[in-house]
Design a protein around this nucleic acid. Structure first.
Lengths: 134, 134
DNA sequence: CCGTACTGTAACAAAAAATGATACAGTATA
DNA sequence: TATACTGTATCATTTTTTGTTACAGTACGG
């Protein structure tokens, strides 16, 4: 995984909520201060997961596909992190007693830790998050 | 942060508990299947945080500095992740209403999420983790 | 129905981060 | 004193991330 994706996704969704309307990727890129193609890559992911809808052509851009109050931050996290956050594993020596078993045990541990994090994020909606902006 | 560090650190500590004694970095490297210098870099970190003690010279190596039952996985996580897991931020445009504020709000969010994860890990000791190995 | 302003995505380049390799001084043991 | 380690620096390599360019496709507005 790549955890700046989460920051980028939240930034995009926050913009769509606060600025409103259909925003072009170039506008979004200017706010985040990253490349417009990177934005379109994020948008593509967010669209696949149903958070936004996009319009091609003149006057097009991205907009929220559902009310911010119905977007859980945990859903965004899940969409963006294909693997769990604490997800990397080594490729240990299978001839070692510990090496042979550890990836299974670590994977289980990661799942528990990830669940705890997701549970916390599931208590916060995009609308909650956006309320912080003055 | 770099989340394979956590897997590596847990692997090392597990080995020290299960195999016992003073293990040289070359032995540990063989189990994890990574470079011995990488192992020594991890060992250095673990030593600084008081999890292990190391001995130089012939017959030297690393050993646990305290009972596995007194090592919380949350402490290992904290030691290894200087920043929070969900820690990366963009460098948004300060001339944008959202860009100007978002990093503060994200940092707060990250802290909450990280706390949830750490709380979960604090319920598991190294001894608990090692019990899973047969 | 044409100019304009977008998306979507591929292909490649550049930059950054992680990992590995080599080297070597220092240290403890037998 | 030979041997087997640590600790750490430096440099090389690999992998991952980010940016750039390009361009076909789409839709709106005059």
């Amino acid at each position: 995984m790549n955890n700046i994706e989460f920051a980028t996704a939240i930034h995009i969704l926050t913009l769509l909520k606060i600025i409103g309307g259909h925003l072009p990727s170039s506008y979004i890129a200017g706010s985040i201060n990253i490349n417009a193609v990177m934005v379109r890559r994020s948008l593509s992911l967010l669209r696949k997961h149903g958070f936004i809808e996009t319009r091609e052509g003149n006057g097009g851009g991205a907009a929220l596909a559902k009310p911010a109050s119905q977007v859980l931050l945990s859903d965004v996290y899940r969409a963006v992190n294909d693997a769990a956050l604490l997800g990397k594993l080594n490729k240990p020596n299978p001839d070692c007693k510990v090496g042979k078993q550890i990836n299974n045990h670590l994977a289980e541990l990661y799942k528990q830790a990830d669940n705890a994090l997701v549970n916390k994020l599931s208590t916060i909606t995009l609308a909650d998050f956006c309320k912080k902006f003055k």
